Amino acid sequence: MKEFLQKLKVMPITGYILFLFTGLVIFFFGAFLVILLRTKNPSKIIMPDLIGKNYIEVHNELVRLGFKVHIQNKRFLDKNDGSILSQSITPGKSTERGSKITLVVNIGVDRVTIPDLRGQSLSNARANLEKVLSGETYVSIPLGEITYIEAKEGQFPETVIDQIPKPGKETTTREKIYLLVTEPKGYKNPVDNFKSLQGKPVSFATEKLKRKNLSWKISDIVSTKSKSESGLVESIEKKDNRYNLKVFFFPVSQRIESGYESISYKIDAPNEYKVVEVAEDQKGKKEEEILPLAFYAKNEELKLVYYRNGNSKLTIYAKDGDKEKSYSFESDL
């Protein structure tokens, strides 16, 4: 110890400075290493559940947490605009700040609930479609084609008796509404003049033919890339006292609560066949013959396009009542 003190006494001033500088370097180097290690190991966070939330509402929070967000868009009419449909990081999973996340977000326009226009005069129905509540504002729903049909006893002229889409459907202002309306007074439409049914919903076109006691079949289902064309009559022609309809159909990847469906079934034995639907919605079950008895030859295809509202089961029956084939259609949501 005495020797060390003696050496300090004789150490020049430059030695003291060098000693102090070395200590400071070691201190700051250690502090730098601590900061560097913390930077390389960001703190963990628990991934929140974003599904169903509006992206605009959660955007700032995701930025605050340091997420690098990638957006993919899909479009579903039954989902709200901006609603997050899925996320690439599972909710509840521990992840690092600054992680990349992909969100699938629904894009859309003004959402509306289809009003019930049945029983209204055509003029009132038109006026009501111009003022439909969407959130806190009023918007209009575009009117598609009107199909006029012969009135039954007790029905008034120019009165809405059916509509597509059905009342209560959640949709957007891009979807047109089609009306089935009783003929006005003095309406003239020769029995054989059915070219006007082109562009009309197949359900309304066939109802018009049934009221005239005319035989019909769907001769062809025409694939279309336009969803707005699905279920509309592409063409109609008369052959051998029967009306043959070609109908557009847009196949969907995901079924919502209502929409057009199609079936095609090759007949094994020549006979008369019909199709009966059992539909189930919030009001209960309803059974209806949607394709009347008609003769089909062997290997001929029985084809049908119809509008489903709720869950639906179709059954093909032979003339003697034997079940030939059944199909079930349900919402995927």
Score class of each variant (00 low, 15 high):
V58R: 00
L8V: 03
K40S: 15
S230Y: 09
E280T: 14
F156I: 07
R38Y: 10
I45P: 08
K131C: 06
V132E: 08
V233T: 00
N60T: 12
F204H: 03
I236E: 01
K303R: 11
T90C: 04
L18H: 14
P142C: 05
G186E: 10
M47I: 09
P184E: 06
F4K: 14
Q120L: 15
R308T: 02
G82Q: 01
S196K: 12
L117Y: 02
T159K: 11
G92D: 13
K225V: 11
K319I: 09
E130Q: 15
E136P: 03
G108P: 05
G154A: 00
S43I: 10
V181F: 03
S134R: 03
D332S: 08
E145T: 12
D49C: 01
E301D: 02
L8G: 05
K239L: 13
V69M: 03
A125Y: 09
E324A: 00
S123T: 12
L37S: 13
L232T: 07
E289H: 06
I161W: 02
E158G: 00
E272M: 13
L50C: 03
N128H: 09
R242N: 08
L143S: 02
E261L: 07
K188I: 15
L62D: 07
I51Q: 06
L143K: 00
P184R: 02
I263H: 04
T39R: 11
I45E: 10
F32V: 13
G82E: 01
K131R: 13
N54C: 00
E330D: 04
P42T: 04
P184M: 06
V10C: 01
I17K: 07
S134E: 10
V105H: 04
K246N: 14
P142W: 13
Y148A: 09
G119E: 02
S235P: 08
G23I: 15
E175W: 00
E277D: 12
I26Y: 10
I263G: 02
A279M: 04
S196D: 12
E96P: 02
Y187E: 09
N271T: 03
L179C: 03
L77W: 05
L333Y: 12
K9D: 10
Y306I: 14
R308Y: 05
T224P: 02
M47P: 00
K246I: 05
G66K: 10
L304H: 09
K44L: 10
S264H: 01
S235A: 07
D322Q: 07
Y178W: 12
T172K: 02
L103S: 02
K238E: 08
A294T: 09
E261D: 01
S196Q: 08
N193V: 14
E272C: 07
Q163K: 12
N213Q: 13
S258H: 08
F204I: 08
P48M: 07
S223R: 11
N106T: 05
L129E: 11
V247H: 05
E330Q: 15
K283V: 05
E301A: 08
N271P: 08
P115R: 04
N241M: 09
K285D: 11
N54V: 00
D162A: 15
I56P: 00
G284W: 03
D49Y: 01
I263N: 06
S328T: 11
